[in-house]
Amino acid sequence: MAQGPHHATSPYAQEAGREIKSLSETDVDELTRGGGWGFAKAAELNDYPGPSHVLQMKDRLGLRDDQLREVQKAFDLMQARALEEGRTFVEAERALDNAFRNRTITESMLQDLIAKAEVSRSRLRFIHLAAHLEVTRVLGADQIAAYGRHRGYSK
């Protein structure tokens, strides 16, 4: 018995129902709560500890009170900036998606919408990476090494 032509389903098929096609609900949640969204991996995986994890491990790392205050300050600043910029990025992606959805997109509009989204994405990445730089300046070499061991990056 002959079968009809085989149609492969796109790996994107399950994403067609997303509110913003380029971002999952998890992505939107992460970005709008100031989460890292993997932006700081270049720092994190090269021995530049992140403020959130340092705060979680403060006792294991033996943070002094002055270090704790500095790391908390770096975290709070990063969080506030990332929260605002994350919302900006999500809105930029929403505008791009809407222009396609509404079939109002033009080439110049496309260029402008992409530029806005990418500038915001760049700012987000800077915010998160800069926080890792700041925290690394606060910690001692032994604390940075301990951080790497506790995070499973080194032995």
Score class of each variant (00 low, 15 high):
residue 9 T to G: 09
residue 120 S to Q: 09
residue 151 R to K: 13
residue 120 S to I: 01
residue 43 A to T: 08
residue 150 H to L: 14
residue 119 V to P: 01
residue 106 T to P: 02
residue 123 R to F: 07
residue 42 A to Q: 12
residue 51 P to A: 11
residue 66 D to G: 04
residue 120 S to R: 03
residue 57 M to I: 06
residue 106 T to Y: 03
residue 111 Q to D: 15
residue 119 V to L: 12
residue 149 R to D: 05
residue 7 H to C: 10
residue 102 N to M: 03
residue 20 I to F: 05
residue 130 A to Y: 05
residue 113 L to K: 14
residue 25 E to M: 13
residue 47 D to F: 05
residue 54 V to G: 00
residue 28 V to S: 00
residue 91 E to F: 07
residue 1 M to S: 09
residue 129 L to F: 02
residue 76 D to L: 10
residue 10 S to D: 13
residue 136 T to N: 12
residue 105 I to P: 00
residue 13 A to D: 15
residue 65 D to I: 01
residue 66 D to F: 03
residue 125 R to S: 13
residue 86 G to T: 07
residue 81 R to H: 06
residue 39 F to M: 11
residue 20 I to Y: 08
residue 8 A to V: 11
residue 99 A to P: 10
residue 62 G to W: 00
residue 98 N to W: 04
residue 68 L to K: 00
residue 118 E to V: 11
residue 80 A to K: 12
residue 67 Q to P: 07
residue 98 N to Q: 11
residue 52 S to H: 05
residue 82 A to Q: 00
residue 150 H to A: 15
residue 34 G to P: 04
residue 106 T to S: 12
residue 96 L to C: 04
residue 80 A to F: 04
residue 85 E to N: 11
residue 80 A to R: 07
residue 144 I to V: 15
residue 40 A to P: 06
residue 67 Q to E: 14
residue 61 L to N: 03
residue 87 R to Y: 04
residue 153 Y to K: 13
residue 104 T to A: 15
residue 108 S to L: 11
residue 72 Q to R: 07
residue 48 Y to S: 08
residue 99 A to N: 09
residue 93 E to N: 10
residue 99 A to M: 08
residue 46 N to D: 08
residue 1 M to F: 01
residue 119 V to I: 15
residue 121 R to S: 13
residue 39 F to H: 08
residue 87 R to N: 08
residue 44 E to V: 05
residue 95 A to Q: 08
residue 55 L to M: 11
residue 142 D to G: 07
residue 147 Y to G: 01
residue 58 K to C: 06
residue 124 L to C: 08
residue 148 G to P: 01
residue 149 R to F: 03
residue 45 L to E: 14
residue 22 S to F: 10
residue 110 L to T: 10
residue 134 E to F: 01
residue 3 Q to W: 02
residue 150 H to I: 15
residue 81 R to I: 01
residue 77 L to G: 08
residue 64 R to L: 10
residue 39 F to V: 02
residue 34 G to K: 02
residue 95 A to G: 10
residue 105 I to L: 07
residue 12 Y to P: 03
residue 148 G to W: 03
residue 92 A to H: 07
residue 155 K to V: 14
residue 17 G to C: 09
residue 112 D to H: 11
residue 66 D to Q: 02
residue 91 E to A: 14
residue 36 G to I: 02
residue 41 K to T: 14
residue 51 P to I: 00
residue 36 G to F: 01
residue 88 T to F: 10
residue 21 K to Q: 11
residue 8 A to Q: 12
residue 135 V to Y: 00
residue 135 V to N: 00
residue 115 A to E: 11
residue 26 T to H: 13
residue 13 A to F: 13
residue 117 A to V: 10
